[in-house]
Amino acid sequence: MTGTAAPLFAGTSLNSRDRKVEWLVRVLLGLMTALLILPVVIIMALLVVEGGPVISWEFLTTRPVDGMTAGGILPALVGTVWLVVVALIASVPVGVAAAVYLSEYAPDNWLTRAINLAIINLAGVPSIVHALFGVGAFVLFFRFGTSILAASLTLAVMTLPVVIVSTRESLQAVPRAFREACWNMGATRWQTIRRIVLPNALSGILTGIILEVSRTSGETAPIMFTGAAFFLPFLPQGVLDQTMAMSLHLFVIATQVPDAPEALPFGVALVLISMVLAMNALSIAFRVYVRGRKKW
């Protein structure tokens, strides 16, 4: 006990200034975050309030009638599922295979680095450019016509770079020590990949794919000229048929059908965004589940 001496841990003026800066930074960053979240919350609320009343079992399971001013959205819903599934069938095997090659087999030289760079850049190409490519390549050159096949392949080409990049990242997150351990026991590259690398990268790969699905299902431009129809009273029977799609349907009734009831586009948007959110929730749940079991 020293009595009169200043307390050992008394603050200086510098400390109190630091504390003010600290407070300011925290408030500013918090505000930015709020600013970011606010529009999302408002959009969601608006969709639910305006579009909620439209949604019913009937809305999801019947066709549009009266020049798309009434009725349901079944053909668009089914069409979107078709488009996404066919796009996945086309892009996932190719994308994953390419990523495995680039990450596990390709020598680390300028060519590989150039390819990786090109892929990353490809992911940034605007979707309307992909749409034009799709028209030229799939609709005209391969003569698929405007069909689900052409539209899905266009979507697949558009999403391939992202599938490749996300898969490659998941593969590279698997520690090198595992690979060396396998090689040292005489495993070939492929055995190592199949038994150790892929199983451990699976959660990341699937997460990437699911996020792709959610993105693909909302795209409009790439399918507009390649396979999605304005209005079709029937469901597609095969990949060479045209189809309606949720995203285009939303665009159409919001802008091209003046006498559609105001709530209708909100309802369609709500269904579309629910699909996407459900996908994302699935991917998050999956990731949490897998991470819970994985330890290294």
Partner: peptide, 26 residues
């Protein structure tokens, strides 16, 4: 060659498998 010449590393690097599968992997 790898079968005849086994290697142990500085940092233990068991595979992310069960103990049993680690031993029977090779």
């Amino acid at each position: 060659v790898r079968k005849q010449v086994g290697m142990v590393f500085q940092r233990p690097n068991p595979l992310p498998l069960s103990i049993r599968d680690n031993v029977s992997f090779g």
